[in-house]
């Protein structure tokens, strides 16, 4: 098992989430940056949906009570393994009583730590992803105990991958037209896809608000379906990008939809980071 000595800024257990449960009003959840999530599991030859830790802004301090192998992916981070520097994208052999101290995220804001075989924490509605109202807690806490599987093989040779960091640095967020985009006046449409937006401090696993306002005359609408990556435009002109833990319905016009790739990139951005939307069409 893994003991949490310090939970970091915001650390939660995530897998691919609860796709298929939305008719009950259950959020999708799952790792914010699916690309880094997939790499973390691939590097350990884990099942695709193995649960891992998603660390936000600053990572936790952990003590291992069992031998295992772990891998870090996502945003760069200073990691101390028993006081020695450890790298991302390379398997780390863990011995009993090892202590891992995770620092602050750099050039991104979410770092992932996968464990051989995946975390064996509670599974609710076919997912281990933590989410308020669904699991007991929305995140891990000090003294949380994470059960893991016994290590079943020896690590022969570590594989290191070149970190895919440059993709996070891009300011370009690829989007498709949302169902209500064509209701906007063409000058407003043009403004949205050409101007630069700043991420407000109101950003979390549910949604990211953007600071710059877009004045519009869109009418009110009936509550309707939304997805992670849907960009809503509120009556006061605020753009809200829905993220993985968003509600499954919403009443604001849906002006844009992020591509899967863009959603993963945005998940690595945080307060005061800037971005611009690049409009694409489906092939």
């Amino acid at each position: 098992m893994i003991e949490i000595l310090n939970s970091g800024w915001y650390t939660s257990i995530q897998d691919q989430g609860r796709m298929g449960m939305q008719e009950y009003g259950i959020p999708y959840s799952g790792a914010m940056d699916m690309n880094s999530f997939n790499w973390a599991n691939k590097l350990l030859n884990n099942p695709l949906n193995a649960a891992l830790l998603e660390m936000t802004i600053k990572g936790p301090k952990l003590k291992f009570h069992i031998e295992t192998i772990i891998v870090f992916t996502g945003a760069q981070m200073d990691i101390k393994h028993n006081g020695n520097k450890a790298s991302l994208y390379s398997p780390i052999l863990i011995k009993k009583n090892d202590v891992l101290e995770c620092g602050a995220c750099k050039e991104g804001c979410r770092t992932y730590m996968s464990v051989l075989g995946g975390l064996q924490t509670e599974r609710i509605l076919s997912s281990r992803s933590q989410c308020d109202h669904i699991t007991k807690s929305g995140h891990i806490n000090k003294n949380t105990i994470l059960q893991i599987k016994k290590k079943s093989f020896e690590l022969n040779k570590g594989v290191t991958l070149k970190s895919p960091l440059p993709s996070y640095i891009t300011k370009e967020i690829e989007v498709f037209k949302g169902p209500e985009f064509d209701l906007l006046e063409s000058v407003t449409q043009l403004k949205i896809v050409t101007q630069t937006f700043t991420i407000s401090h109101l950003n979390n696993r549910m949604a990211y608000q953007l600071e710059e306002k877009i004045i519009h005359k869109l009418p009110e609408m009936w509550t309707t379906a939304v997805l992670p990556g849907t960009v809503q435009l509120t009556p006061s002109g605020t753009l809200i990008v829905l993220m993985r833990d968003a509600q499954v319905t919403g009443g604001y016009p849906r002006i844009l939809q992020l591509s899967n790739h863009a959603l993963n990139i945005l998940a690595q951005k945080s307060t005061r980071n800037v971005l611009h939307f690049k409009l694409k069409s489906f092939e």
């Binding site: 008719e23 009950y24 009003g25 959020p27 109202h133 509550t223 509600q247 319905t249």
Partner: peptide
């Protein structure tokens, strides 16, 4: 339908 919160009926 159900939305807003898990189990919230419209």
């Amino acid at each position: 339908f159900i939305g807003f919160l898990p189990g919230f009926l419209y």
